[in-house]
Design a protein around this nucleic acid. Structure first.
Lengths: 145, 145
DNA sequence: CTGTAGATGCAACTGAGTTGCAGAAAAATA
DNA sequence: TATTTTTCTGCAACTCAGTTGCATCTACAG
């Protein structure tokens, strides 16, 4: 575990590599998201960053910026609140984290990330083409109950 | 096709059977939803009922009431707006008795109702079970452009 | 060290949806 | 039909997530 200062510099570099300036709001936010085991809402991010005094709109914009820079992913899980999760760099050659299907558990609210191998969706072309898949149901932990 | 007056009385009866009073706002709303080939938002319902002068909140409440009475189904299609579609009691040919997959067009925002025959979703049981399917993509009208 | 593109704070705004309350209108009843 | 009871509606004010315009500030390239 690197020293605090060092971590900060690491995140700053991540931001800079993504073409964004390394401001404290973004650094703290990015670290919070990377630390979190689940996607966070804007509100949760505010609460998770008591040490950072930023305006609401700044944090909204930071989340937008991180999203369009590809550092985090924005999820709409059907409860009318955006959630953001750190995009974990995959072993993908291009280094791009590709969108994948999600399963939203209607019991516990957890999200299960799925692969295209897990879910096979077929839609006749005449009806349209599919970009993203959201399943609602019972996750592995809840399905037996 | 029954006369206008007759239709109104039919809908009034449907409402009464569901334990709701047959007010003009609800009758017109229910008929609009029954006529619509796709789920409607509150806003779309307002626009679809220019002849009905109701307060916004009344229509919101009417949609709530119809939903809790089981006459319509409320859908969250992930674009932060509730949509409502008529629930037909009998599994009629044209009716939409059971929940079914929907395709949300990311271009035009339109909703396409799908059947279980249109969409085949397979998810390994170890990952969970599926209750509802929401696809995001390009609808038939938008996909070529 | 400086100029500037980009980031921030502030305040005002949007848009969906909710709520409290008084008055109005269905339905029930007499 | 008239009266009472119950439910619904209109209004206005509110919440909550998110956005926007603009003046100011700052990270960082040169």
């Amino acid at each position: 575990m690197p020293r605090r200062k060092q971590r900060t510099e690491d995140w700053r570099q991540v931001l800079r590599d993504a073409g964004l300036r390394g401001t404290s709001a973004r650094i703290e936010l990015l670290e919070l998201l990377a630390r979190s085991p689940r996607p966070l809402t804007h509100q949760e991010a505010v609460e998770g960053l008591p040490q950072v005094e930023t305006d609401r709109s700044t944090l909204f914009r930071a989340l937008q910026d991180l999203t369009s820079a590809g550092l985090v992913r924005r999820l709409d899980l059907g409860d009318r609140v955006w959630r953001y999760e750190r995009v974990v760099a995959t072993a993908d050659a291009a280094g791009e984290a590709v969108p994948h299907p999600h399963l939203l558990c209607v019991d516990c609210g957890n999200i299960t990330c799925l692969t295209d191998d897990d879910v096979q969706v077929k839609l006749p072309k005449r009806l349209g083409t599919v970009e993203d898949v959201l399943l609602k149901g019972h996750c592995a932990d809840c399905k037996e109950s």
